[in-house]
Amino acid sequence: MAIMYALKSSDNEIFEVEQKVIEQSETIKKMIEDGAATGEIPLQVSSKTLAKVLEWCKQRQHKTVENENDDNKGKRKKERDEDDDIKEWENKFSDELKADKDVLFDLLLASNYLDLPALLSFLCQLVADMVAGKMPEEIRRMFNIENDFTPEEEKAITAEHGWAFQP
């Protein structure tokens, strides 16, 4: 019988989750190991975002069905097919996030807070791909960055790699 834990989102929604799934979060794993995870585990994550987090964790939970008759090669082929499915799922997952940037950045902060390195890397890569082609002014706006260069300084630093500003 799988051990279940109850996670409570910041808006008081309860999520019943298998220990194996939620242990991917280093933060929660540590809480469980320390014996601090009794009853409901309160998290500073909204229910909408937490649902996304769990969606990711469940997908990453490998569900290999071992077949006794399979030899090494057969097993590996099966895993490869499964991996292709997972990649396809990840593509769908990232497309959804690209469409809703608020969820994307909430999820980014949640993966940092819950210490989910795989999800964090996945999302950082996603954001990096989104901003890679943008011009400095767009990035400043997006991340609320104040330009503290004088016009002369900015001109000089821009001139150092002028080609990087061309598409």
Binding site: L108, V127, A128, G133, P136, D148, F149, E154, A164
Partner: peptide
């Protein structure tokens, strides 16, 4: 630290361009 993580995935060309964002 998350921002640094994001930047570490960017191509060199983007990073050279983003040097002019701010002193930080």
């Amino acid at each position: 630290d998350v921002m640094t993580d994001i930047l570490s995935f960017l191509p060199v060309k983007s990073l050279l361009r983003f040097r002019c964002l701010s002193k930080e």
